[in-house]
Nucleic acid binder design. Structure first.
Length: 810
DNA sequence: CTAGGGTTAG
């Protein structure tokens, strides 16, 4: 269905025709990027510890002093005006009930909100909510207030149904309601907690739950509310919290249902506690709880992660015996599992079975699963069959479908086909994502598996200390690499890999030429620009990966002069090319330019920039960019107090910056008890009230979790005590290009070792380092005093070396 | 209310 490779040009033409004819092309509704919602999301770890009152404000203030410009038309950014209306209503004299609005009007507005809530149209609902509030002068009208509450709750439901980042808005609406009315009820809280759960924001969900208990002390939250809380914990990987919430409820003799068991089950699966997952699954029938499709899907996910394909088939049979009908998810799970096990034929059998079942709703997902299975096994013929089945069922290919196809073509080094598929993707109005560019240039896992041992040798040969593993010159033309050139498609260069992409760059260049010619002929050339832009992005990525860093900059400049629009991918390639060339100044300048253009940087952008700054000895700059990134919700590695997770950090330099940032904060925390005693007042009040709250709740309810969640939520993160064990998660290095070697892990071990830290690699998990709280505190405080002595002694170099014993400029 | 898979990378 993707046509044949020789028709690149004609395909381009047809793509162009479609663009010109279709006015709606690429005019998709773009959701505001999650990069802007930082001020209220996450664990606030990015915020500097200043005054405690400020910290508290960050958590409770309804109006974020945010620079959020993406929400321009929504309720929230208009909230200052709402505020005005609130204060106005206070000074207003009572309006006689009934004379302001009639019932009919209320009903129709509620209907409108209901519709938006069902559609999950959060933006429209928020806008409507704002106009409704703003237009009303009848806040003392009881009837209206009641309706307004309904409006608010329905808006929150819209936020919940919509994908994140609208959970931020939900939380803000709640805070707004508390301040200006209408007063939130149980349902309000439920909607907000559910929205936060969906967004994996367990910490804010927990806090909201605590607030609910505070606001409704005589009301026991429903089982559904607890289910939402457990779900939030589960999605945040907080198994222990999920479990104790569940156990606490069980102790109170509350009747449990399938829903809460399912939430608990998926919390176990999400936290990779597979043993606990099977215990929960086994317990359900014993406790008289009925298993449904969701239950089975959860346990299948668990088995799938454990690569237990045989057990999965068994569970599948059992569920049929129990008359639980599988759904699309069930079959997708099975198909993917067979794909991972290398049995794409069995995968396709399941797909055929699904197609036979007429009643079963089939989306692109199930076909994508089967397609992925075929591509993993290198069965392109079978992959084509899957595509025909998809077509026959009338299912439209998605971006994932195209990404998978691209993977398959690039694995075969069929660059013509790669360009073909890419153009078709663009022709269908899809916007490529970061994965697309990886798939375009992606190197086949099958082949790399065969020459991995050779690469591993060349990479581990370089000693991973700061001096040798910092970015080197691009010496990929060296004799050593040329000799092995025909054997490998990927070559190790310093610590970056150069990929042989064959004719791909040239093909992309000639495609650009064709597009350029078409643009001059076309009546409306601007419609071509998005296609042109994406092809440029692909070219930049290909150039970067094939080691042509200088060419990346040249092509980027061409884009600017030709006024081709840029994307985050454009700048990611550009900054990555500066990273390779060790040009931290240019990288920083590129970051500034993209922000001026209104393009939100992502984690990859920040990682590349921070890495090059750190490795070039620009530590203050690296730290400043890190804090900048964290303000925007990226590179937040401390999701739990005392646990630093470097899992998702790509480069060693960035890991070093994060580690230093974390140790500095830890050090000020280690010194915190002194501060609390000295600076008293505000801090002391917070602490005292939190402790009181904890004791009260402990008395009224001897369940440990509730008191824990209350007191923890009420003490700002910055002055809470550290846990018994401090941990840095370094990851296993499993997914590193070279098996068993992780630059991040090596760097962390070298740094902590060089600093004489008490951290050690425990036997039970080689993917982390741990130390006792007391030892860490002693180490950090001792270090603090030593630095002070050195500082007073005028030893500037020593002070600067603090936490960076092996940095490049020592 | 609860489940939500699949593609890349790490």
């Amino acid at each position: 269905m993707f046509g044949n490779p020789s028709r690149v040009l004609s395909r381009t033409r047809s793509a162009v025709d479609e663009l010109v004819n279709d006015a709606d092309f690429n005019d998709d509704l773009r959701i505001p990027s999650s990069g802007d919602d930082s001020s209220t999301s996450g664990s606030f770890t990015g915020q500097r510890a200043t005054k405690n009152t400020e910290i508290d404000n960050m958590l409770t203030e309804p109006m974020a002093k945010s620079k959020s410009h993406t929400y321009n038309n929504t309720f929230i950014s208009c909230s200052p005006e709402v505020d005005v209306s609130c204060s106005r209503l206070d000074s207003k004299k009572t309006i006689t009930p009934g004379n302001s609005r009639n019932g009919k009007e209320h009903d129709s507005s509620v209907e409108h909100f209901e519709k938006l809530a069902d559609q999950g149209n959060a933006k429209a609902a928020l806008g409507l909510l704002y106009t409704t509030i703003h237009g009303s002068a009848s806040w003392k009208d009881l009837d209206f207030r009641e309706t307004s509450l309904t409006h608010h709750n329905l808006t929150l439901r819209a936020c919940k149904r919509h994908r994140p980042p609208y959970h931020i808005e939900a939380r803000r609406v709640l805070l707004q309601m508390r301040e200006c009315g209408p007063s939130p009820n149980l349902q309000t809280y439920h909607e907000v907690i559910a929205a936060l759960a969906r967004a994996h924001e367990w910490r804010i969900a927990e806090r909201t739950f605590a607030e609910l208990k505070r606001d409704f002390p005589n009301h026991n939250p429903t089982i559904e509310l607890h289910t939402s809380l457990i779900s939030a914990y589960g999605k945040g990987g907080q198994w222990e919290r999920a479990k104790s919430t569940f156990d606490a409820l069980a102790k109170e003799n509350v009747t449990m249902d399938t829903g809460i068991y399912n939430a608990l089950l998926s919390a176990a699966v999400g936290a990779a506690r597979y043993h606990e997952a099977s215990i929960v699954f086994e317990q359900m029938p014993k406790k008289g709880i009925i298993r449904n499709v969701t239950t089975y899907n959860a346990i299948l996910t668990s088995l799938g992660r454990q690569r237990r394909i045989f057990d999965m088939e068994l569970v599948h049979k059992n569920m049929r015996k129990s008359y639980v009908e599988p759904n699309e998810t069930t079959l997708s799970l099975l198909i993917t599992a067979h794909g991972n096990a290398g049995d794409c034929y069995r995968a396709v059998e399941h797909l055929e079975e699904a197609c036979k079942a007429r009643w079963l709703k089939k989306s692109a997902v199930i076909f994508n699963s089967a397609l992925g299975a075929c591509v993993k096994s290198g069965e392109s013929k079978l992959a084509r069959d899957v595509l025909s089945m998809m077509h026959a069922e009338g299912v439209i290919p998605t971006l994932v479908t195209y990404n998978t196809m691209l993977m398959s073509a690039s694995a075969r080094h069929d660059w013509n086909q790669v360009v073909n598929i890419y153009l078709e993707l663009l022709q269908h109005g899809l916007t490529p994502d970061a994965i697309t560019f990886d798939c375009i240039c992606g190197i086949d896992k099958l082949q790399s598996a065969t020459d991995a041992p050779g690469r591993a040798l060349s990479a581990t040969g370089s000693v991973p200390n700061a001096k040798t593993s910092c970015i080197r010159h691009n010496d990929y033309k060296s004799a050593e690499t040329r000799n092995v050139h025909d054997k490998k498609s990927q070559l190790s260069v310093g610590n970056s890999l150069v990929t042989d992409l064959g004719t791909l760059p040239e093909l992309l260049r000639s495609t650009l030429n064709e597009l350029d010619m078409l643009a001059t002929e076309s009546a409306s050339p601007q419609k071509l620009t998005s296609t042109t832009c994406h092809v440029y992005d692909a070219l930049l990525r290909a150039l970067h990966l094939s080691g042509q860093a200088a060419e990346v900059e040249t092509v980027f400049k061409a884009m600017v002069s030709k006024r081709v629009c840029r994307t985050v991918h454009t700048y990611n390639s550009l900054i990555a090319s500066y990273e390779v060339r060790r040009q931290w100044k240019q990288a920083g300048q590129a970051m500034i330019s993209m922000q001026e253009e209104g393009i939100a940087p992502d984690a990859l952008t920040f990682d590349a920039l921070i890495n090059v700054c750190e490795e070039m000895g620009q530590w203050d700059r690296a730290t400043a960019w890190l804090e900048h990134a964290q303000e925007q919700g990226h590179l937040r590695c401390e999701d739990e107090l005392g646990v630093l997770d470097l899992h998702r950090i790509r480069s060693a330099g960035t890991a070093q910056t994060v580690l230093r940032w974390w140790l500095r904060r830890m050090r000020s925390r280690a010194l915190a008890p002194l501060d609390v005693r000295a600076a008293g007042q505000g801090t002391r009040i917070i602490l005292e009230s939190a402790t009181r709250g904890a004791t009260v709740s402990r008395k009224s309810n001897n369940v440990r979790t509730c008191s824990a969640s209350l007191s923890e939520a009420d003490i700002p993160l910055q002055i809470r005590d550290l846990p018994d064990q401090i941990q840095v998660v370094t990851g296993w290095g499993k997914h590193s290009t070279v098996f068993g070697y992780s630059p991040v892990k090596e760097r962390v071990l070298a740094l902590l070792g060089g600093l004489n830290s008490p951290f050690i690699v425990p036997e039970y998990n080689i993917g982390c380092v741990v130390a006792e709280r007391g030892e860490v505190r002693a180490w950090l405080v001792r270090d603090e005093l030593l630095s002070l002595v050195r500082f007073l002694g005028g030893n500037r170099a020593a002070l600067r070396r603090n936490f960076n014993p092996m940095g490049v400029d020592t």
